Amino acid sequence: MAPSAGRSDDARLRGAATKRARSRAAIQAAAAEVFAARGWLATRVEDIARAAGVSTPTAYNHFPGGKQQLMGEVYRPLVDPLLSAADAAIRSRVDPFEAVRAHVSALAQLARRHQRLTEALVIAVGEQTAKVGRPTVPDPSDIRIIVPLTAPLTQLLEYGQLARAFRDYPPAADTSSYHTNAILLRVFSRPDETPQDTARIALSQLIPALDR
């Protein structure tokens, strides 16, 4: 093959990869806007594809898990700072109680700042759980795998248990799941509540359960 032909093939491959990346980014950005505007129940993949300027099959080609996967990809970047903050607190040996308080406050702020997306996320997770039960295998299209909502608090609780600051029981994962879900559900039950009040209520129940 002539060198020019090889360069031409490389250029076509790069162009195709760039086009695919742009399409994926456009679909994800459109999903964030549509979910925030319409909520979970009123949103269809067709609506997201139209807003992104692509066909519905193209949207499914990028996100074969459909609405569930799209919701996960939209919300995951919002959770990443919570994961980073938990890692930083553990590395810096921050007091476990202070680290938990900071995380709960940050999660409440996140849930309230992105209230419509949080509402959509909670419904999506509930639907997925009702449909297939607990995730049993790694599934890259399962919203519960994509969005590790309980992971930061689980890490902080395990850190506190290892430091002998927190009770060993219940297991960190169970405590994290219970209290993280409680915070998110207050978006529904108390839609006008401030993030500060949400955090205060959550911590009033969580901290006594941790203290040895």
Rank of each mutant, 00 (worst) to 15 (best):
1 M>N: 04
96 P>L: 04
59 A>T: 06
3 P>G: 09
22 R>I: 00
197 D>V: 13
125 V>Y: 02
203 L>S: 08
33 E>K: 10
164 R>G: 02
148 P>E: 03
81 P>S: 06
180 T>S: 12
121 L>D: 03
56 T>R: 15
88 A>D: 11
174 D>K: 04
131 K>W: 11
148 P>M: 06
133 G>H: 07
88 A>Q: 14
117 L>D: 10
109 Q>F: 01
30 A>V: 06
73 E>N: 15
158 E>K: 06
137 V>S: 14
71 M>E: 12
52 A>V: 03
50 R>P: 00
192 D>V: 03
168 D>N: 10
120 A>L: 04
95 D>K: 01
202 A>F: 11
65 G>N: 12
125 V>Q: 12
168 D>I: 04
3 P>L: 12
212 R>H: 09
181 N>S: 07
128 Q>T: 13
164 R>C: 00
115 Q>S: 14
172 A>D: 08
174 D>C: 09
85 A>S: 15
23 S>C: 09
163 A>S: 10
12 R>T: 03
150 T>S: 12
70 L>C: 15
70 L>S: 15
77 P>H: 09
196 Q>V: 15
105 S>M: 10
35 F>D: 00
110 L>T: 01
196 Q>C: 11
47 D>E: 05
146 I>V: 05
186 R>T: 13
89 A>F: 07
60 Y>I: 02
27 I>H: 03
41 L>W: 08
69 Q>F: 12
80 D>A: 13
180 T>N: 02
87 D>L: 07
45 V>G: 11
155 Q>M: 06
26 A>C: 06
91 R>A: 15
83 L>N: 03
141 S>I: 08
205 Q>K: 11
108 A>S: 15
4 S>W: 06
57 P>C: 02
15 G>H: 11
149 L>Q: 03
118 T>V: 01
204 S>M: 11
121 L>W: 02
75 Y>H: 14
65 G>C: 09
146 I>S: 06
26 A>R: 12
171 P>R: 15
66 G>S: 11
136 T>D: 13
205 Q>E: 10
21 A>L: 14
80 D>N: 11
128 Q>A: 12
160 G>W: 00
41 L>K: 15
96 P>S: 07
131 K>C: 13
39 G>A: 08
117 L>N: 13
133 G>E: 04
41 L>N: 14
5 A>I: 08
204 S>T: 07
165 A>V: 09
154 T>W: 00
46 E>H: 07
26 A>K: 09
24 R>L: 08
156 L>R: 02
58 T>K: 08
51 A>P: 00
199 A>F: 10
2 A>C: 07
9 D>V: 13
95 D>I: 06
157 L>V: 01
194 T>Q: 02
55 S>H: 04
72 G>P: 08
124 A>V: 00
157 L>C: 02
4 S>C: 02
173 A>M: 05
145 I>P: 00
91 R>S: 15
191 P>K: 09
54 V>Q: 05
153 L>M: 11
45 V>I: 12
133 G>Q: 07
11 A>M: 12
54 V>E: 05
176 S>D: 01
